[in-house]
C-alpha cells in the first residue's frame, strides 16, 4: 500500500523564486489499484509522481510503501526500492539509445542487489520473458532507436516490470503515441493491473483516466477531487 500524509514540496527553497508545488498532499492507494492522476499543467501531478518514484525528495510529510517510511532510509535502500518495488514508465520512454531492447530490459535486472540478482543466463531469460509479455520478443536484438513509439513504450514497460515490482508508475505514458497505440499500451497496463500490480498513471488524456479505477485530480498542489469512474 502507498501511504502519503501532508507531503509538502517546495522548489528553489530559500531563494526569491521559491514556490510550493505540493501543499500537504495526503492519500492512500491500496494494493492492486489502478489510479490516474490528472490536472492542469503545473498542478503538481508530475512532482507527486516523481516523489512516489523516489527520484525527487520532499520537504515535510510522510511517505511509506508497505509500511516502510521512505524518508528514513539510506540512498542505497532507496535505490533498492526503485529497483525492486517500483517500475517507472516515462512519456519519452527513457530508453538507452544504442542499447538493444533486450539490453534495456536487462538494466534493472543487472542492478538488482547482490542478494536478489539472478545469474546472467537467468537475467537474459527473464528479460526475454518480459519482452514476450508485452509482445516485443521478436525485437529483442533490435536497437531501440530503430523502434516505433509504441514499440519503445512496450520495451519501457517490459523494463519497468522486469524485477516484478508491485507498483508501476507512469508519467504521461501515452503522451507521445497515437490513439491506436494508446489503446494497445493501456491494454498492457490493464493486464498488469489484473495480475495484481498497483498502477498509477499521470495523464492529461481523459480517455486514459477513464480506464482507471480511481481518478485523483490535483490543482495548485492540492488534491481537489477523487472519483471512481467505473
Amino acid at each position: 500500500m502507498i501511504y502519503l500524509k501532508d507531503i509538502v514540496k517546495t522548489y528553489n527553497k530559500g531563494k526569491s523564486n521559491a514556490y510550493e508545488a505540493l501543499h500537504g498532499i495526503s492519500m492512500e492507494i491500496k494494493d492492486g489499484e489502478m489510479a490516474a492522476v490528472i490536472g492542469t499543467s503545473g498542478a503538481g501531478k508530475s512532482t507527486l509522481l516523481h516523489i512516489l518514484a523516489c527520484i525527487d525528495g520532499y520537504d515535510s510529510g510522510e511517505y511509506a510503501i508497505d509500511g516502510m517510511e521512505l524518508g528514513k532510509i539510506s540512498e542505497k535502500q532507496m535505490a533498492q526500492v526503485r529497483n525492486e518495488k517500483i517500475g517507472m514508465v516515462m512519456q519519452d520512454f527513457a530508453l538507452v539509445e544504442g542499447f538493444t531492447a533486450l539490453d534495456n530490459v536487462m538494466i534493472p535486472l543487472d542492478f538488482a542487489g547482490r542478494q536478489h540478482r539472478r545469474k546472467r543466463k537467468e537475467r537474459k531469460e527473464r528479460a526475454l520473458e518480459m519482452l514476450e509479455l508485452v509482445g516485443m520478443a521478436e525485437y529483442a536484438d533490435k536497437q531501440t532507436n530503430n523502434l516505433s513509439g509504441g514499440q519503445k513504450q512496450r520495451v519501457a514497460i517490459a523494463r519497468a516490470i522486469a524485477n516484478n515490482p508491485s507498483i508501476i508508475l507512469a508519467d504521461e505514458p501515452t503522451g507521445a503515441l497515437d490513439s491506436a497505440t494508446t489503446k494497445e499500451i493501456m491494454k498492457v497496463f490493464r493486464d498488469l493491473n489484473e495480475q495484481g500490480r498497483t498502477i498509477i498513471i499521470v495523464t492529461h488524456d481523459p480517455t486514459v483516466a477513464e480506464e482507471c479505477s480511481r481518478v485523483i485530480r490535483i490543482e495548485d498542489g492540492r488534491i481537489v477531487k477523487q472519483e471512481t469512474p467505473c
Binding site: A53, I55, E75, K76, A79, Q80, R82, N83, E84, M88, M90, A94, L95, V96, I107, P108, F111, A112, R159, N163
Partner: peptide, 14 residues
C-alpha cells in the same frame, strides 16, 4: 543514460 540507470535502481555513487 545515467539517469535511466538511476531510475532502474543504481545509486549516483554506482
Amino acid at each position: 543514460k545515467y539517469t535511466v540507470y538511476y531510475l532502474c535502481g543504481l545509486t549516483w555513487r554506482g
